[in-house]
Design a protein around this nucleic acid. Structure first.
Length: 189
DNA sequence: TCCCCGATTAACT
DNA sequence: GTTAATCGGGGAG
């Protein structure tokens, strides 16, 4: 099945705690405006987690992180970058999975235009890079990834489950390092 | 109101 | 390995 006619995932797949959902997302496909990328690296964040934006309760920035599973949470950081998350759990939980890296599988031309002079493998190999390639900003915050008519969607193209999943410490955080809440599909090479 | 710093990236040495 | 870029969030006062 091609990603272009693949169905959106069932919301129930996301209605569990972020550390449970995160490895589940590996291999699924993010689709927006003719662009598609297979999820190859994720991190989990929860409300009782000092590294999470939801740790100190709901704020204007993190509000969508407390919405229902399948909501897209996009935040702005370092004065120039956006990062995208898939909200999980129940309404009010404040849990999400950060999309850290995708493998570009469709709409490469549009991605190259969004990130000129980069190698293809550098189009989506970072949380802010994938947002650049997909043109994501705060206007996408709150979108529903499980709505088949949504501008941005999460689909399952039948890709076989990854044979190997690696896990380890999350990147770029100070507190919460004892939680091995990063998962990725090891690069074939 | 002020001030510090970040779930990053790219361009250095 | 180090560091500048760049600015909004949110805690402190």
């Amino acid at each position: 099945m091609s990603w272009s006619d693949a169905p959106v995932i069932a919301r129930a797949l996301l209605e569990d705690d972020a550390p449970v959902v995160a490895p589940r997302l590996l291999g699924l496909v993010l689709v927006r405006d003719g662009r598609a990328g297979r999820i190859v690296e994720v991190e989990a964040y929860t409300a009782d987690d000092p590294a999470s934006h939801s740790a100190r309760g709901r704020t204007a920035r993190s509000a969508s992180m407390f919405d229902r599973a399948g909501t897209l949470y996009v935040y702005f950081t370092y004065g120039m970058h956006y990062c995208a998350n898939v909200v999980t759990g129940a309404v009010g939980d404040g849990q999400a999975v950060l999309l850290r890296a995708l493998e570009p599988i469709g709409g490469l031309a549009a991605m190259r235009r969004a990130r000129p002079d980069r190698r293809d493998r550098e189009l989506c190999d970072g949380p802010a890079k994938l947002c650049q390639s997909f043109g994501l900003d705060r206007s996408f915050d709150g979108a529903d990834l499980c709505d088949p008519n949504s501008e941005i969607r999460l689909v399952d193209d039948g890709f076989e489950r990854p044979q190997q999943i690696a896990t380890g410490t999350r990147i770029g955080i100070r507190e919460g390092r004892e939680r091995p809440w990063r998962w990725w599909i090891p690069r074939e090479h």
